[in-house]
Computed example of a mutant assay.
Amino acid sequence: MIHKNFLLLFFFLVISNVINAQHSLSLNIDGITSEEGNICFAIYTNESSFLKFDKVFKFGSGKAVKGSTAFQITDLPDGDYAIAIFHDANGNKNLDTNILGIPKEQIAFSKGKMKMFGPPKFEECVFTLNSNMEMKISLQ
């Protein structure tokens, strides 16, 4: 009986770990042109929240390092994600744009690129995370 209960407990522990799998993403950002300000990233999980600062799934920032900067993002469950990154060179915690809405600061996305008339869509930037992953993104 004890042996049976132990096997049942072990089975539930294994299943719960599979269901609640958490992964890490090593994010390497290159093309940083100066050490001024910070590199900021935002992770989105769906199209309706994409590029909305009040609907970010996870975000972070770190001191800009000329050349490249790296982030280790942890506790990400299996799923589809899109990432937006910008170099907040003046440290005002905003992506500065000109009068036409064109970014004045360097930006990048997990896959898609800026278009002539605006940013890429969520589906152009989305990637699937189901294990630990490393991603390299170049600022534009």
Rank of each mutant, 00 (worst) to 15 (best):
M1E: 12
I2W: 13
H3R: 09
K4L: 15
K4C: 11
N5W: 11
L8Y: 00
F10Y: 14
F10P: 08
F12L: 12
L13Y: 08
L13G: 13
S16R: 01
V18C: 11
I19C: 09
I19V: 14
L25D: 03
S26I: 11
L27F: 01
E36Y: 07
E36P: 06
G37T: 03
G37V: 05
I39P: 05
I39R: 04
C40N: 11
C40T: 14
F41I: 05
A42L: 06
I43K: 02
Y44L: 02
Y44S: 03
E47H: 04
F50P: 05
F50Y: 10
L51E: 07
K52C: 05
K52T: 09
F57M: 02
F57V: 04
F59Y: 14
S61Y: 13
V65L: 14
V65T: 15
K66S: 11
T69R: 14
A70G: 03
F71S: 09
I73A: 05
T74G: 06
L76Y: 07
P77K: 07
D80M: 13
A82N: 06
A82S: 13
A82K: 04
A82H: 07
I83S: 06
I85R: 05
F86G: 01
F86Y: 11
H87V: 13
D88V: 10
G91W: 02
N92T: 07
N94D: 08
N94H: 13
D96N: 14
D96S: 08
I99Q: 03
I99R: 05
G101T: 14
G101F: 12
I102V: 15
I107W: 04
F109L: 00
S110V: 01
S110F: 02
M114G: 01
M116P: 03
P120R: 04
K121F: 04
E123I: 00
E123K: 02
E124L: 00
C125M: 10
C125V: 04
V126K: 10
F127D: 06
M133Q: 15
E134V: 06
E134H: 01
M135K: 10
M135E: 00
M135C: 00
M135Q: 01
K136D: 09
K136M: 03
K136R: 12
S138G: 12
L139F: 05
